[in-house]
């Protein structure tokens, strides 16, 4: 996708266009998110309910604090756009609430080109932070961005994010684009770094063998497990290694050949990193060719949207 301001091309590393499900999932996943509201904000009511319902601290940049207060929306902090960016870059900063550096920064309504610069700074100098932009134009420097939408489409997307935020269970999916995949194995390496033992393996043809993320009540692996060690966590199946006996029944049952019993004697399967602190799965971030994609939808459909 072309950037909203089409010359805003930072380089080889550009973020993903995200669906409402991916955005909602990331917000729910974050431990210490922060919402940064800029001077061009047009959806203050929506932002207020996001902050209130998800208990997200807010920073007002420029002079938007005045307008926010008039709307009954009291920002937690007032800082310049460049000042909050600078604070987010510092691993020493303990965040708006003093609970630790934030892990997710959600931007909304900062002037497009200034926001691009803030996101660039965070992309390059704050690897500890995932960024989302909720302004209606594609920002390549954000990890997750809204696509280029007109006003009506943007309103619709926000409404869908609201819906997705309120549901308990998501429907997950993951795919690898085999044309883009160069069989480098970065996804496996990243997975191993994140989880100790890699949950994804490469097939004989050197492409990653992914979990199908079957619906939990229909998954063969979970059904095959005699000790109920494969549990449903908000729509994704996670192996409880304390309970797993390493019997291999799941491995036999999996139609994709994904789940397997590792050298440590327990089964391993992909969780899209829901059981780690990562907001975007490690393999997705690691894939430099953009071949690895994941999807999160709010509704239980047969086919999931691509992320």
């Amino acid at each position: 996708m072309r950037a909203y301001q089409s010359a805003n091309v930072p380089g080889p590393h550009v973020g993903k266009v995200a669906s409402s499900g991916i955005i909602a999932n990331a917000i729910k996943k974050a431990m210490r998110p922060v919402l940064i509201i800029g001077s061009d904000i047009k959806h203050l009511d929506w932002m207020r309910s996001l902050a209130e319902e998800m208990d997200i601290p807010t920073v007002a940049t420029a002079h938007i604090a005045g307008a926010m207060r008039e709307n009954g929306f009291n920002p937690d902090r007032v800082l310049g756009a460049i000042e909050i960016t600078n604070l987010l870059e510092s691993p020493k900063w303990t965040g708006i609430r003093g609970e630790g550096q934030h892990d997710l920064a959600i931007f909304a309504g900062v002037k497009y080109y200034l926001e691009a610069q803030m996101l660039s700074a965070l992309k390059n100098f704050a690897p500890h932070i995932t960024t989302i932009t909720l302004s209606p134009g594609y920002q390549p420097n954000a990890d997750l961005s809204i696509p280029n939408l007109n006003e009506g489409e943007f309103d619709e997307l926000l409404a869908k994010v609201t819906d997705a935020l309120s549901i308990e269970s998501f429907r997950y999916s993951q795919t690898v684009n085999l044309i883009k995949c160069t069989e480098c194995g970065d996804c496996v390496l990243a997975c191993e770094k994140e989880h100790g033992i890699a949950r994804i393996r490469l097939s004989e043809k050197q492409v990653p063998v992914l979990c199908l993320h079957c619906l939990p009540d229909k998954a063969k692996c979970a059904a095959a497990c005699e000790v109920d060690a494969i549990r449903d966590e908000s729509g994704i199946l996670v192996v409880d290694s304390e309970l797993c006996t390493g019997c291999g029944a799941c491995e036999e049952a999996c139609p994709a050949g994904h789940i397997y019993v590792g050298s440590d004697g327990v089964a391993h399967k992909c969780t899209l990193c829901v059981d780690s602190e990562r907001i975007i799965p490690a393999c997705v971030t690691a894939c430099r060719d953009g071949a690895m994609m994941y999807g999160v939808t709010e509704k239980r459909k047969k086919t999931a949207k691509k992320g």
């Binding site: 091309v9 930072p10 380089g11 080889p12 590393h13 460049i82 960016t85 600078n86 870059e89 691009a116 610069q117 803030m118 660039s120 700074a121 390059n124 100098f125």
Partner: peptide, 9 residues
């Protein structure tokens, strides 16, 4: 200095 690259290259 606090940097915000306009181009990563």
């Amino acid at each position: 200095p606090s940097y915000a690259p306009i181009c990563d290259m």
